[in-house]
Design a protein around this nucleic acid. Structure first.
Length: 588
DNA sequence: GCCGTTTTCGGCCCGACTGTTTTCAGTCG
């Protein structure tokens, strides 16, 4: 029995269980629809903002889309006992490690089973050994080329991290798309895939181009200095790798069907599948080549993606929403959100300078913010306990305020506010006294130390910060560092509740290593009437460009401008802040 | 296994590419 809350499995654990079940079903050659059902449920649970285990205990699992009676039963058993009989039975004679083989590109269930049956291979090392001895080439359906490719993949598996930060991949992708557009005969080209959907981490750069001469385009692309090598090359598509080791996918179609391809290549897979199902119900068959109307024996192609959605009787759906999380239904019902845009932001409430660990002075940051189209910024440097960042004590904070006032008098077109990024100490105390905090325009409180404390203590700290009347927002509330460090052990449910109760805003930190809170939690926050702030956490003048990542994350969470405090002009913000915290909560 | 403004049963996405075949199975996105 799971004795207490802290022992409950996390959503990632439950999702992992379902994924594992799906993989064993895959190996056994079970119905693809059953496999898909488990994978879909796993995805939903992985993305769910609050504890699914708690949901299981309260009997609410069936409210999750994709969770029916059978999967509910499995999850409940897992939450109650820590294991699932279904997985034990499925696993049967297979060793646990065999599903690892499915991670190798080129190895699917059939080949894995064949390798197991004919050579007894059940793990990566055994596979490498067999390849080196030339045994794999003799296996049914495999030859020397297969063996060669498998060895290359096995060698690559250690060096290649399969995920890349959006902030890393996006500039490369935009550069390549621009280079594609410069190839003669290319009508247009774009970045598609997960980068276009603004996923915080991506696995590849997906590019699409419109041209009547696809071969010329792929030849030119293959010769780009950024392209390290080409792995596959067909008539209309190319798969390769950049020198930065990120995989590249390029597809080329006739310009007349460019809109169809762009939609297809943007995905997600789940969105496309749902869209196809929707279209099939209307007698239409969607593929990247066009929309076939079987009754009329016609095919619809278009250069413009929006015309494709229009053809299906839907408004254009922003890429960030295309995850099959209700966007098609919302589009049908005319209730798509008016997603926040970068230009909706009037200010940035979390900006560093060289008073702490920033790289530029106050004036440089202010001028850069003005150039970025902002009306106000709040200087929120670190506070004294964060010694590595030269955090400010009371005296330096007061001097900084004076410096800010002087610069405010001198420069036009931007208002500079005085705040701080207040350290929430390991013992739950705050790093500066209330008297000092009360004089600041905006206070962001963040955790930077003792990250591995148990959930209870982490929550005690966050609670103390949120209950302080001078704390306006929690900075990077979960503490996750993408691809590097998981979130500290926060109780998201509890954070949302406290934020709503105390009227404390939650930050969407735009650093592409953080993107914290993530969009799914932001979406839940909005539902509960919690206000958001989207901040750059800029440490240099270029840092305001990061806001586009925070905006993307917010859009993935269906966030509208009205839910984000810094879409308001500063005078309006002052009114809200003057109302001691209560002003933040607004009726829904 | 899930799901319902076509449906509580019968659907559930499909084309490109590779390597091995010798007309296609397996994998991928």
């Amino acid at each position: 029995m799971h004795a207490s809350l802290t022992e409950l499995p996390r959503n990632a654990d439950i999702a992992g269980l379902l994924t594992r079940i799906a993989r064993f079903f895959t190996l056994q050659g079970d119905s693809t629809y059953r496999i898909l059902a488990y994978e879909k449920a796993a995805q939903i649970i992985r993305d769910h903002p609050t504890s699914v285990a708690q949901l299981a205990l309260s009997g609410g699992l069936r409210t999750l889309p994709g969770v029916g009676a059978t999967i509910e039963e499995t999850i409940r058993e897992y939450v109650d006992t820590g294991h699932a009989a279904l997985l034990q039975n499925l696993r049967g004679e297979y060793p646990d490690s065999i599903v690892d083989l499915l991670d190798i590109p080129g190895l699917g269930p059939r080949k894995v089973i064949t390798l197991w049956n004919e050579l007894g291979i059940d793990n990566l090392d055994a596979l490498r050994e067999a390849c080196l001895r030339g045994k794999v080439a003799g296996v049914t359906g495999m030859g020397p080329r297969t063996e060669e490719k498998l060895l290359a993949e096995l060698d690559a598996i250690d060096v290649r991290s399969s995920q890349f930060l959006l902030g890393f991949a996006e500039p490369h992708a935009y550069h390549l798309a621009a280079a594609l557009r410069n190839i003669p005969g290319v009508s247009t080209a774009d970045t598609a895939g997960s980068i276009r959907r603004r996923c915080s981490t991506v696995q590849s750069i997906d590019l699409v181009a419109g041209s009547r001469r696809p071969n010329d385009v792929m030849n030119a692309f293959a010769a780009f200095p950024e392209v390290a090598h080409v792995r596959e090359r067909g008539n209309t598509s190319l798969v390769g790798t950049a020198h930065t080791s990120i995989p590249l996918h390029l597809r080329v179609v006739d310009p007349s069907a460019y809109g169809n391809l762009l939609q297809y290549a943007t995905g997600s897979e789940n969105h496309n599948a749902a869209l196809r199902t929707y279209a099939l119900g209307r007698g239409l068959d969607i593929s990247e080549h066009g929309v076939a109307n079987k009754r009329q024996d016609s095919i619809f192609t278009t250069p413009a993606e929006s015309c494709l959605y229009d053809h299906l009787g839907l408004p254009w759906i922003p890429p960030e929403l295309r995850e099959d999380r209700g966007e098609i239904e919302a589009a049908q019902g005319g209730s798509l959100p008016r997603l926040i845009e970068r230009t909706d932001l009037r200010g940035d409430l979390h900006v560093h300078t060289d008073w702490s660990d920033g790289k530029a002075n106050i004036e440089e940051m202010a001028l850069a913010a003005r150039s970025a189209g902002l009306d106000y910024i709040c200087i929120c440097d670190h506070t004294q306990s964060l010694a590595v960042a030269r955090g400010l004590n009371t005296e330096r904070l007061y001097r900084q305020r004076e410096a800010i006032a002087e610069i405010n008098n001198r420069i036009e077109g931007i208002t500079i506010l005085a705040g701080c990024e207040l350290d929430i100490l390991a013992n739950g105390r705050l790093d500066l006294p209330d008297g000092v905090l009360s004089e600041l325009d905006f206070v962001v409180a963040s955790i930077h130390s003792a990250l591995s404390q148990p959930r209870k203590q982490i929550m005690k700290r966050l609670k103390a910060a949120m209950e302080n009347p001078h704390v306006d927002a929690i900075g990077h509330p979960t503490g996750r560092l993408l691809l590097r460090r998981t979130a500290y052990d926060v109780d998201v449910e509890c954070i949302l509740e406290l934020a709503a109760q105390t009227g404390t805003a939650l930050e969407i930190n735009s650093s592409f290593e953080r993107l914290d809170i993530p969009g799914n939690i932001a979406q839940e926050a909005v539902v509960r009437g919690v206000s958001l702030v989207i901040n750059s956490d800029a440490h240099n003048p270029e840092g305001f460009g990061l806001l586009r990542f925070g905006i993307g994350e917010a859009r993935r969470g269906w966030v509208e401008p009205s839910s984000v405090l810094n879409t308001r002009p500063w005078p309006e913000m002052v009114q809200i802040l003057r109302d001691p915290k209560g002003g933040f909560s607004r009726p829904r």
